[in-house]
Design a protein around this nucleic acid. Sequence first.
DNA 1: GTGAAAGCGCTAACAC
DNA 2: GTGTTAGCGCTTTCAC
Lengths: 340, 340
Amino acid sequence: MTTTSNILQGRHELYREETVQKVLVAAEQLGYRPNLLARGLAKQTTHTVGLVLEPHHSRITRNDYALPILEGATEFLTQQDYDIKIITLVNEHPKYLWCRIESAAIDGALLLAPVMESPLLEWNQHLSIPVVSVGSTLPPDYGIPYVDIDNERAMRMLVEWILAQGHRQIGFVKGHPLHWSAYQRERTFRQVLAEHNIHPREEWVVQGNYTAESGRRAAQQILACNKLPTVVICANDGSAVGFIQQLTELRIRVPEDISVAGFDDEPLLHPIAPNLTTVRHDKVQVGYLASQMLFQQIVNETNSVASTLIEGSLVVRSSVANLRGGQRRPNYSQLKEVQR
Amino acid sequence: MTTTSNILQGRHELYREETVQKVLVAAEQLGYRPNLLARGLAKQTTHTVGLVLEPHHSRITRNDYALPILEGATEFLTQQDYDIKIITLVNEHPKYLWCRIESAAIDGALLLAPVMESPLLEWNQHLSIPVVSVGSTLPPDYGIPYVDIDNERAMRMLVEWILAQGHRQIGFVKGHPLHWSAYQRERTFRQVLAEHNIHPREEWVVQGNYTAESGRRAAQQILACNKLPTVVICANDGSAVGFIQQLTELRIRVPEDISVAGFDDEPLLHPIAPNLTTVRHDKVQVGYLASQMLFQQIVNETNSVASTLIEGSLVVRSSVANLRGGQRRPNYSQLKEVQR
DNA sequence: GTGAAAGCGCTAACAC
DNA sequence: GTGTTAGCGCTTTCAC
């Protein structure tokens, strides 16, 4: 049995060609297919990783993050002969949470953008299989490595570019309050402005939650101010699109009347807002790298915590006006006029 | 051990309350969690089903079908304590195909819209675990049950409604040539027209492949005809959106100059083409029912082949003009004029 | 109501 | 190089 087992596992070099062939042919004829469960039991491994979705991501369809991540992860893991299991959490008691995950029989897990108060962050206190956070940059004390876009660097790039276009009156639509990314994006926004001695009017910094609907509301809120910013940065493309749609319905032009920038360069939204200036965020690559990192941990049996940030890049289209080019931005009364 | 095993599996009625509690408490204290692999080995079951994606659906992101299906399937299977494994096929030789699937260690599988020449259709000749085709109505000789929208009924409804609006010059943009749904939709289109003694001009029936890009090309092709249809039915919303965008760029108005209808009522496209008249297609429900059907087969160990068709419903918005209302449609020369 | 023991299909020491 | 054997952690038949 040793012989058969070894050969079937690909350790051909231990035997002479003749034996190898004999086994292989026999296996072929009998239509033999290894039982992965049995192998897993014996080797204590399942060749499967989990992609954990929190209740918060409830309807996966609406989550434009899950798919590219899944795609990238699939791409890498398929090469390694690993499968992916979708683990959808449904508000289980913390008590059952770890059971649920453990009974999925996985070798490791990808956490899809865990939110700030997610119980999943205590992973290492309950489970011993490796885990990687994908899409949330986590404080180091959780001991969970992550792969994410470098939100701070990317936002800095965007804000500095916008400043270079001559804008000084800058608004901001925040992201979802529970997301680390939202926090980082807003913080960097403020920081860069501060470095340029600009203090944003707080009425121009409004809450959003990454949805188009929240972008619309944000637009209404900002338009209600006495003075308007020349540009508004939205924490993601989704809210930027809502923002722009609201503006458009009020016949306010982008970027002639007001400039808008997004973040993420969401491909699905290209047809809706083809001229949106934003920051490219390669989610497929995030998924790829995260699964690669997870795989390393699984095979090395090391829990080395070396996170990876990937760089975003500025995508300049035409939704942000260049105020330097001698273009005049309309004054407030004109704007109010046009809203009628 | 019998006692423990039985109680842990929920067969409490065999024992007196006292024993049950003793076991449960002990398990709790020891932090016992069953090893699903071992249980699987013993019971010959894995509590996992596969969602099989063909190479054809290569980039899952682009596939607006996979997610709602996954969502529906997750919803049902989570209740049943089943997990879902994503099985992405990558052009393996047919020889390895079945190994690949078998080694995924699943109790059954959902086939995501298998295409016409898919090797997966020979499933029953190679594998003995149950399978359900989701999103492709298959000829009965394959012996694979399916859950799908009733393409024929839905298309009939749409075409008849369009006829009722007074349209007689009707064009059609076909779907992807390898998809059963495309075949059904086109056939029904022709059939309903025939029943009304209308014979569509063949130059108005053009090939598409469900993408927006193919819709644009279709628009160009139809606009190149000497005579134009008053309405064009696109085999899905994706191509309808491309069709409309191409028209819009040429300053042809929908529906004033030409009417356009879609199919599927794809939520992602609502913001892009909010006025598209189409047919509602509840993919989440398809996924739910398909997994339910698969589950039945798994637990009953019956391979009963009873497919399910779910009904679509007409979504009337404003992209199709009512020719009865005394509205005049522009003549050809006006249309050509406007394209300049 | 409970324990002993065989076995699910495979891997990996270990001896030969 | 090759066969024997003892598990992996659970279920289940069969005695008691």
